[in-house]
Every structure is written in C-alpha cells, then in structure tokens.
Amino acid sequence: MEQTAQSKSRYGMVIDLDRCTGCGVCMVACAVENNVAPAEQKATERTGVTWLRVYPVSNGEGFPANDTVFIPMTCQQCGNHTPCVSVCPQNAVEVDPSTGIVGQIPQRCLGCRYCMTACPYHARYFDWWDPQWPEGTEVLLNPDVAPRMRGVAEKCNFCHGRLHAARTKAAAAGRKEIAAGDYVPACVESCPSRAIVFGDLADETNEVSRLSHSINTFQFLPKLGTAPKIFYHSAKEWVRKMADRAPLA
C-alpha cells in the first residue's frame, strides 16, 4: 500500500492504571480477536501466549497497607531503536512507516527467539505448541487473522486485522485517511473501565496525544531510549516510582 507523506501516523495508547480493575476482559478479547489458541495442558504463565498480559503488581507492603496495581503490558511499539526489529535475521519484524506499528510476519519467522531476548518488555511470545482449539471451534475463528504455526514468535500488532478492515472501509468510501472510530483494537473496545485510550499520537488534536503529555503519565523503561508508544497513567506516587525503579534495586 502506498502511503503519502502526510498520512504518517503514530498509533499509541495511554492506559490509565487507576481505572484498571484487573478483570482481564482485554486479555480474552485479544485472544479471541487474534486467534490465539487456548493454553496447551502443560502451558504455564511462562510458556503461554498472551499478546496482552495484565500483571498484578504489589507495593510490597503488608496487610492492610498493601496496594495492588494492574499493569496491562503489551508490545510497546517502540518508536526508536526498536529492539526486536534490528535483531531479526530475516526481516520478519518490520515497523510500518505509515502507522508506526511494529509488525511480525510469522510466515517468515524461523523461530530463533532472538527478538524475544531483545525485548525488555517481554511482550513477545513463542508458540511452543501447535495452536489447538477444541474440536469444532475452527468455525469461530476470526477470518481476518491468520493463526500462527508452532515454532514462531508472535506479539501484539494493534489488531492488524482491524486496521486492514478500517482501511478497506475508508477506501470504499473514497477517503484517504481512516476514521478514528473505525480503528479500535479489541482490548480498547472491550475494556469495561475504559482505561485504555487509543489513537494517533502524531495527531496533536487527539485525546491520546493530549493524555500522553499530561501530568502523571509515564512510560516503562524510558531510559533504554526505545521511545515506547504505550503510555501509562497513575495518580498514585508509588506506582510511578515503581515504574522508574531499576529491577531488583
């Protein structure tokens, strides 16, 4: 698809951690939307595939001073020195210059997992098993997203199927740009607390762009210089301090 220079978007998210209740709808909606298979019997939290994972994080205090925050962690769509892109030996990871979205091409991936060691956010997942749905469920799969075979890496791509559908819709209507409401990833759409705001960060009139600059908004691991496009927001000081702390410090 040819992109004109002015159609350069930078899709990103601002996730309000104070609103997140940790219910997990986003994770399930993501798996259903992107044809991520249910866990194999032996799979664990370290071998499962969750493009979006909500981590419960405690402030480390005892009862009742304990506090927990739920951190939805997805591919951070790094905008600078994208760690996974440069390491892939066969160009199976690409940043779409027109959207800023880091895309994974599972059909080209040889499963070396170098990208997974490169990703500091642990947002990449390997298919340790063949994807298996219970018998009969194949008809319930999303026709817009190709299921991945075993032995490849996969990750969040901001619901590429939905972006494609929005582009098709725009093209059908003779528009060059997609309408903001037409492109909403499954996690954003399903969040009961409306904790995730999604949109084009490059568009300064946009809510997501405004929120990304607002007070108490932060990124994880900003010092790595990877310029993630997922922003987090919390009015709780301990949450922001935690995000700024070195691990094991």
Partner: peptide, 16 residues
C-alpha cells in the same frame, strides 16, 4: 533450536 528449521534458509533470502 529454531522453531522452524525448514525456514532457516530464509536468512539468505530475506537477510536483515
């Protein structure tokens, strides 16, 4: 070690 050994030659075809 690689998940898809049959695609190992892709590195020569689509080298990064």
């Amino acid at each position: 070690d690689v998940g898809q050994p049959l695609r190992a030659w892709f590195t020569f075809w689509h080298p990064n």
